[in-house]
Design a protein around this nucleic acid. Structure first.
Length: 658
DNA sequence: CATGGACCAGCCAGAGATCT
DNA sequence: AGATCTCTGGCTGGTCCATG
């Protein structure tokens, strides 16, 4: 009988010699005899070179044939390891005795990673770096707190889990085996108590509510604040208390209504009806005062550009809403796609298989598109040649290629508006664009580089100045970092982007703000970046640069570069490398490599990585606040727009955050 | 030309923090 | 206590791209 024992091994760096390594093994393979260090047993070795550059990896196998010593009949097997040797046979036996069947293929490294990955809460799934953190989390969340209030004391599961965690801490290398036991315990728990929180259906026996906390009587969710519970109840009971006066939309939260009015009905949100609407809805205080201020400010004729753009936006929104309503009505009998119109919002990820043909799609949207195209015979006829298509994008592509038409309804210029030329030459056509351009820092920088390459690098340009400064201070390698950073932190400088339509509306008709005025010559600039550029180009280096990562303000670009390099060190820098860093080799699940958070979609992970890896951010030039997502950033900009109609979102209004 | 994958911006809602 | 802001994840329609 051959007993395979996976040995604890000691790795040593390879000497690099293709013939004889420092560990004394024959790198050319073959069979030899080796004596174990403690018992003096003579073991046969088989080594098989792995076809790999260098000599550092091979598969080796130590064995002793049956009959020489029955007690030491064993086989030490290591697979694909660097040159390694058995350090202590006794220790090997002790460990191997409890670890039969486990693989230490990467000399403990993978095991450590696996142990780390296994340190996650069995209830909520949160991963922890240290076992004591996990133990504390579980004690606080499920043994002390919920054990007190939610679960009867007669349950034995917490005690079992405590024992389990104690075992895991004492013998951490048994995490895998204990995981199996944990799964069994979870099954027991699910049987007795209902499924845990991390289960799919999320149902469990109604817990005894904590009297100290506000909790929903319907779904038993707990809230720290009573108002959050009230807000939740409005959602839970489907009561829409905040209808929009300008469209059919209704909202169950006042902030959502306010946001809707701000974004969809810009031309109306300053008049009295919006104020009355909010007043009727019970909204008072700051929001109402803001609207009143805006209403007064709008009477002097400011904000006409917004009004026009808002009308256009509202018209498009109404058209889209009507189209959507028709689409939904058409989809009312969309049962063959496995979901209803009502269930479209949070249908989950399971309904991605077509019930007609069985095809599985990567998203529910693609499934719906497939159903419409293949099983519902949707037709999109061409108005020019009569060609018919089953998908709108195909019709659009056809119109673009055959009839020279632009994208349907996208980025149509607003009449009467003409944007000022951008200092970097990025924005030249106002809101009108023939083709969508994705707003990424890399793309923006690429456009800048392209333009510079076309027109030639002019002396005195921002780029050349940066380069000169960085070369002076010996940090020329930071040029792309700093430059891309400035590009991406200046939304207006980020080129034409749908996300920054508000910024696009800041044209020459918009009143310049004093904060964007040059302190030397009084010239106005559209953005703080433009202002910095002007001060740099026209008045030397006496500028005031605020660090994006701290409150420091630097007088020169050199100091800014030095400050940023020394204090913030650019560990994960540059947005230039964003494409590489954000597109790692695809994992089986969309999990963050840093924090372990998992997402249902790849772009959700990507969006998360912007913050987790610090590869992308947007800084508000009004209040300096940093945001990691464009939609949040835009919502934040709206607060400035609503609070002060004379402020330019892309500009530098000195305003304290309320 | 049809089709699916992938991505994007935007919307919605849950939740906590902060301000009034 | 109520209002507001921010962060976050899931989901959507629209869109582009690659492939057959």
């Amino acid at each position: 009988m051959e007993i395979i024992i996976h040995a604890k091994i000691e790795t040593s760096p390879c000497c690099g010699s293709p013939d004889v390594c420092c560990c004394g093994l024959d790198a050319n393979g073959g069979e030899s005899v080796v004596t174990t260090p403690t018992t003096g047993l003579k073991l046969s070795r088989e080594t098989t070179p792995v076809a790999e550059a260098g000599c550092t990896r091979r598969s080796e196998r130590l064995y002793q044939t049956k009959g020489s010593d029955s007690q030491s009949e064993c086989v030490f097997a290591t697979r694909g390891l660097p040159h390694a040797r058995v350090r202590d046979e006794v220790a090997v036996r002790e460990i191997a005795g409890g670890r039969r069947g486990r693989h230490y293929d990467a000399a403990g490294g993978q095991l450590a990673a696996a142990m780390l990955a296994a340190a996650h809460c069995s209830e909520c799934g949160i991963r922890f770096k240290h076992m004591h953190s996990l133990r504390r989390h579980f004690r606080l969340q499920y043994i002390e707190e919920k054990g007190k209030h939610d679960r009867p004391t007669t349950r034995t599961f917490p005690a079992q889990l405590r024992k389990l965690f104690l075992q895991r801490e004492l013998l951490p290398y048994r995490a895998f085996e204990l995981d199996v036991r944990r799964m069994r315990l979870k099954a027991i728990w699910a049987t007795r108590m209902g499924a845990p929180r991390s289960s799919v259906d999320g149902k469990r026996a109604a817990p005894v509510p904590d009297p100290r906390l506000a909790w929903c009587p319907q779904c038993s969710k707990k809230f720290k604040h009573a108002y959050n519970l009230k807000r939740h109840l409005r959602v839970c009971h489907q009561v829409c208390l905040y209808p929009c006066d300008y469209c059919n939309a209704s909202f169950n939260r006042s902030d959502n209504l306010l946001k809707h009015v701000r974004e969809k009905h810009r031309s109306h949100d300053r008049d009295s009806s919006a104020v009355d609407l909010l007043a009727e809805a019970g909204i008072h205080g700051e929001s109402l005062q803001r609207l009143k201020i805006e209403r007064n400010a709008s009477s002097d004729g400011q904000g006409q550009g917004y009004a026009h753009a808002g009308d256009n936006h509202e018209r498009l929104a109404r058209e889209k809403a009507a189209e959507m309503r028709g689409s939904i009505s058409n989809d009312a009998d969309d049962s063959l796609a496995g979901e209803t119109a009502e269930g479209r919002g949070r249908s989950g990820n399971d309904d991605r298989q077509c019930t007609q043909c069985g095809m599985v799609f990567c998203s529910a949207g693609n499934l719906r598109r497939h159903v419409k195209a293949r099983h519902q015979a949707f037709i999109f006829p061409c108005d020019f040649c009569g060609a018919a298509f089953n998908r709108s994008d195909n019709l659009r592509k056809h119109n673009r290629e055959k009839h020279g038409l632009g994208a349907k309804g996208s980025f149509r210029p607003v009449s009467g508006y003409k944007a000022a030329p951008h200092p970097l030459g990025l924005a030249t056509e106002g809101v009108g664009l023939a083709k969508k351009q994705t707003c990424t820092p890399a793309n923006s920088l690429a456009r800048v580089r392209h333009r510079s390459a076309q027109e030639g690098e002019q002396e005195g340009s921002v780029d050349s100045h940066f380069q000169a400064v960085l070369q002076e201070v010996g940090l020329q390698e930071m040029l792309p970092y700093v430059f891309s950073d400035l590009v991406q932190t200046s939304p207006a400088a980020a080129g034409k982007c749908r996300s920054f339509d508000l910024l696009d509306n800041v044209g020459p008709s918009s009143p310049p703000h004093q904060a964007l005025m040059c302190k030397v010559c009084g010239a106005f600039s559209r953005t703080s970046f433009e202002l910095h550029s002007h001060e740099w180009n026209a008045h030397g280096r006496a500028v005031d640069i605020g660090c994006r990562d701290c409150d420091a303000r630097l007088a020169t670009f050199e100091k800014y570069v030095q400050h940023y390099h020394l204090l913030h060190a650019l560990p994960a820098a540059p947005s230039l490398q964003r494409a590489e860093t954000l597109d790692p080799p695809r994992l089986s699940s969309n999990s963050c490599r840093k924090c372990g958070a998992s997402f249902s979609r790849s772009w959700c992970l990507k969006r998360h990585m912007w913050k987790c890896e610090g590869t992308f951010h947007l800084a508000c030039q009004v209040c300096g606040q940093v945001f990691w997502r464009k939609d949040t950033f835009r919502s934040h900009l709206l607060t400035h727009t609503t609070a002060n109609p004379t402020s330019t979102p892309g500009g530098g209004v000195e305003q304290t955050k309320t």
